[in-house]
Design a binder for these strands. Structure first.
Lengths: 406, 406
DNA sequence: CCACTAAATATAGGCAGAAGATTTACCGTC
DNA sequence: GACGGTAAATCTTCTGCCTATATTTAGTGG
């Protein structure tokens, strides 16, 4: 006979109702008691009492102006309230291998400021990463004119699997553990919720919230950097697995015509090197340079035979990858994200077309992310928002620039 | 401003608490108010009032006997209640291609009776399947001495993907649609909840509830019949996907060394046929007969070279399949289920051992199901149980052999 | 200045649950 | 067979949340 949650106090009822009202009003324009009544089904007196209560707590502001918005004008003017998106702040971080980005956003996930900390090229010292996180956060908060105490929830994306508690397994040669040197504790503050999450998972959250996956219930965000990784959203849930390893794509080693989880950049470089070795590419070709991938698509568009061949190989590879993942999970969409995504725009249509060779209808669609390099940070902010929205009254908001109505 | 659920009436609070209490005592021995208080945190008066209420509704019986169980004997004897597992019945069906099985169970998922309807060998007429369902249900209910009205929830497993509403896409050549000819409507009755679900998914539910997956939060049930299909349980959720196709294994066509989603039986038959064609197997070998697969393992155990070779090929194939699925989703376990499962017991250890060739630590474990041919039906019953437990007070139970206390 | 209107406020009542006093139904024991 | 002791049931009182239904209020337009 295990314990079960019950409402053993009227106070709990009120709290649940207040949270429901707050969620209903979160994204709304200024609203009146009538709106609150419609959204919750509560009586006017109760709705008003809850609004006043939420205003006392700092979640809502009562707008002095009664019928300012000229919304009609018979009868006694309605009291108007508005959700205060700056009642608290959200912090989203992308703790990449060489760079840490912090994003400060309000309670509607509107980005207010950024902060970036570059890390030394070959660093694996945990303290350097931890310091970098602190630096990026400080920069972002300063730019936003905000204070550490204003942050209700912080979420960090790391290039490693993470379990429910934000811990990463060591991984081979301890790479994962080095990427996630207990970043949770760096960000922890009293009254603040902190979560460490896999970066591809956060990219998926971002795509689902404001990207190509909005409205979709089954899709993947394919983070295409040096190695491929995926965030899997199925039935509206982010998949985690035993130890957070869901979406790790080592299974691609078993997929015919793919053979590894290498990202598109490394594969392109390798193919171009092979062409050079075979004498089909001049040793000083721009395709072999730093910006090889950008050059590659330009050259393919200009019908350079080697470039066309390589791009076709990449298309085929990506189609196989997407087919394998999407078929097993019945996804309707694969969003290719990461730094390389913008360059891949032209590729995705070709990939989608090629899917019919490797998958069966209904075929998924492959698109490039429009969120750019910020995908992980934005996803982190949205994840933080979910945490706050899930139980807003669990967060203390009173401090922030608000004088409670006594 | 979308509508949100609120507790706008004391009645709702009471209902929620009653449901919580009921869930807490669902699997308990006879219990007293003290037990109920401990499980819910409510006061004695409230707990007793709720128990009486639930007894009135027919969910609990009050045991006349006060301190019969000799559980101590100072003070005023406690009133004792017990959950009534027969307050309503659950119906689980396995609507296979050639055979329909119905299982009747009580509210603790204890199986009370079976009913089987065999279908003509080559039938695809929807009406024949629908009639078969009715026949199997009638047989099972009769054996249980029960009536249609006693069934609170029914769940059917079909060999086809199903969406949230129990509908199946037509599939190529309409096979799926024929396997699921609106079975929902056949079982529908006023006051009864009906659900149509993919059979592999139900096998996964069964394994998670009473099979090898009990306690595991990320595992797959691999239904190994003529074709492979999987039910995927990740983070405690059954994966569905866009149209219920999650766990369809056509992606195996892309996996090296696998190449198709054919089950082990067909592959074994094909390998044996090839051996026979090559003259390595006598044309009258028992391995080529009806019970080939059973024979195969026996022969391999006796070091028959052809049999050993085929079993090794099957081991390798299964290891690749499990590695691909388990790696993508970070599963800790793959349970091989289906009619063939019992024969596969000896194979699974070899498969688990071979996984290290195709996957990386932490490696999943592969085991054979111990649930036998009933896995789908049992899973269906457990799924039905979930439906009832989720909101027990939404079901009317009063009728069944119980005189409410006026 | 007066109806009219729509919203805010005030008042009363129902109901769930807590808290604590009291009663009850047993057990020993003398 | 009356007498404490005990643990649970029951009774009484109280608080808080919500509904329902007046009543008041702050405006508009004639």
């Amino acid at each position: 006979m295990t314990a079960h949650v019950v409402l053993n106090s009227p106070h709990l009822v009120r709290r649940a109702n207040a949270a429901a009202l707050l969620r209903a009003v979160w994204d709304a324009r200024p609203f009146t008691a009538n709106d609150a009544m419609a959204a919750t089904g509560l009586t006017r007196s109760t709705a008003l009492a809850l609004c006043d209560h939420l205003a006392d707590l700092g979640w809502l502001s009562e707008l002095a102006d009664a019928r300012a918005a000229g919304e009609y004008s018979k009868g006694r003017p309605a009291r108007r309230y508005a959700f205060r998106p700056t009642a608290g702040l959200l912090l989203g971080l992308d703790a990449g291998q060489n760079r840490i980005t912090a994003v400060v956003a309000d309670l509607r996930a509107q980005v207010l400021a950024h902060g970036v900390a570059r890390l030394p090229r070959d660093n694996l010292d945990p303290q350097i990463r931890r310091d970098g996180v602190g630096r990026a956060v400080h920069l972002a908060l300063t730019e936003a004119g905000a204070h550490e105490d204003d942050v209700l929830a912080a979420v960090v994306g790391v290039p490693a699997p993470t379990d429910r508690h934000g811990a990463s397994p060591p991984g081979e040669d301890g790479y994962w553990a080095r990427m996630n040197p207990d970043l949770r504790s760096v960000l922890s503050r009293p009254g603040r919720t902190v979560l460490v999450e896999n970066d591809a998972n956060l990219a998926a959250v971002a795509e689902g919230a404001v990207g190509a996956g909005a409205g979709s219930t089954a899709f993947a965000a394919l983070l295409a950097g040096e190695r491929l990784g995926a965030g899997l959203m199925v039935d509206g849930h982010l998949l985690r697995g035993r130890a957070g390893g869901a979406g790790e794509l080592r299974m691609l080693e078993l997929v015919e015509g793919v053979g590894s989880s290498l990202g598109l950049g490394p594969v392109a470089r390798e193919l171009l090197r092979q062409a050079a070795d075979a004498g089909r590419l001049a040793a000083d070709s721009p395709l072999l340079g730093e910006d090889g991938v950008q050059e590659l698509f330009r050259a393919a568009a200009a019908h350079d035979p080697v470039a066309v061949e390589v791009v076709e190989a990449l298309t085929d590879r990506l189609a196989r990858v997407c087919a394998a993942i999407a078929t097993l999970l019945d996804l309707e969409l694969v969003v290719v994200a990461g730094a390389i995504a913008t360059a891949l725009g032209p590729l995705t249509a070709a990939v989608t077309a090629r899917l019919e060779r490797y998958a069966h209808p209904p075929l998924p669609v492959v698109v490039a992310s429009r969120l750019g390099a910020d995908a992980v940070g934005v996803g982190a902010v949205h994840r933080a928002l979910e945490l706050v929205r899930a139980d807003p009254l669990g967060f203390d908001v009173a401090g922030r620039g608000h004088a409670p109505a006594h």
